[in-house]
Write a protein that binds this DNA or RNA. Sequence first.
DNA 1: TTTTATTTGTCCGTATGTATT
DNA 2: AAATACATACGGACAAATAAA
Lengths: 277, 277
Amino acid sequence: MPTARCQLGIGSRPQLSLGEVRMVAKFVQIADELRARVRERQYAEGTVLPRQSELATEFDVNVNTVSAALKLLEREGLVQSRRSQGTVVLPQIPLRKVGMDRYSRRRWERPTEAEDGAPYMDERGWQPAAQSTEISIEPATEEMAGRLEIDEGEDVVRRARVIRDARGTVTHTLVSYYPHRIAKGTLLMSEEQGPAGHGGAFRVLTDLGHEPHSINERLHARLPDGDEAQSLEMGIGEPIVEMRRRTYDGSGVPIEYAIGLHRASRFQWNYTFNVPE
Amino acid sequence: MPTARCQLGIGSRPQLSLGEVRMVAKFVQIADELRARVRERQYAEGTVLPRQSELATEFDVNVNTVSAALKLLEREGLVQSRRSQGTVVLPQIPLRKVGMDRYSRRRWERPTEAEDGAPYMDERGWQPAAQSTEISIEPATEEMAGRLEIDEGEDVVRRARVIRDARGTVTHTLVSYYPHRIAKGTLLMSEEQGPAGHGGAFRVLTDLGHEPHSINERLHARLPDGDEAQSLEMGIGEPIVEMRRRTYDGSGVPIEYAIGLHRASRFQWNYTFNVPE
DNA sequence: TTTTATTTGTCCGTATGTATT
DNA sequence: AAATACATACGGACAAATAAA
């Protein structure tokens, strides 16, 4: 039965009646209430929320208003709505802490440690559950030529990966580019995910005489376009973090350029450094 | 006159008719079209777009559909809608490149260089136009005590700033916390923005025998809550980047903890480091 | 100062499409 | 085939914020 658990702190029919109090739209108030319920486990992880029409009855609003509230929560990464399936509470996965030490030499120098291929292993030992790789060879665009300091049109190896967590949710995509003259005929061009995972890639590059030495990372948070949203299997409106990484060998030659698209709600980026001169 | 410039690539009345083609909602198509017009300067920066009802007529859709499209563009940071004022195209400001060298010692060690107080100066010499500061002394919460490695309840100096660009738009907020035993009676507690701007703070800390030595920064992109959106003068739904910074002196003692909230569409975060051992 | 017009924001009720179950 | 549940869209109503009269 429609238990009127929560009365929105607002008046009767005529829109929002608020005096000097800041006016807050109904759909925001409903989102706040639902968010609270998720946080206090009234709606547990994996649960399917009551359907929109039920929530509408409970809060005494129109279905559209509930829908707007749920879209807000969906953009926050808290729930996910699917046609004909309802709205499920997503598992409250702790933020994946992405630190500089994921590139640590010991992570990839000793193949026996069986840690290779885990580009985003954090303190808790998380590692990706699934990863699909797609390799191709392309002529360098003008931009890519600049990034890799090669000639425009020269071949580059493109290595595109989609990384999912244990539940099958896409957490991020990563596209790496290597100069073909470095990568050709090596494991970098294998579609196996094993040795040529990220750590493995570093090892391969080392074997080729291009040991990774320094890294530049740029982060920018934004909304995805339609294609990006589709490749990440998320809605537009949910923010992503674009990471661009350039890796140099000891002599300052760029050996890799990578573009990652990360579901913003899943990652925390961690950098430690000394105050520069 | 309603010049039907752009026909949405969709059928007649019955919703979206799409066969094998990926179905794209009308409001997304309209957003795409409007975004393109902004990019090709058909709608220049600072321009007020045609009102929603006009756009609705042009695209032959309902006003609500146009409204949804504009909300999408607003979340992208491309336009801003205001009641009774219309929708203006925001200036296409290049991303502010926030690098580690904003903490460079030379930036704050020599007061004569007149660069002090510019926490986010980038290669192009950008600096904040306005900055309002609010100082208070508070007992440390449990979290803050942990961050600053002091006792819970011990006093901390809280220094909250709102930074705007030259046009008066809030770009970010920054709240710094210092142990009171370090900061008391110093310029850190002055509300003047001059010497106690960021660079200045570092100089003051150096004078106090706590020269900043290393820094840890954590970034996380997400949507703001209502209060945060208000303090940044932006809408909920537009992503922000939360930065948490801990600064240590040479002996590893935390001397500052700061929380920044940044309009995501304005910043690019830049880190360079060597591959760790 | 008060009133009026303009424009967007929110919400409602309704209808229909789409994807599952 | 039918029921389910969300997604999108429409048209109408009114409120809120601001500008203009």
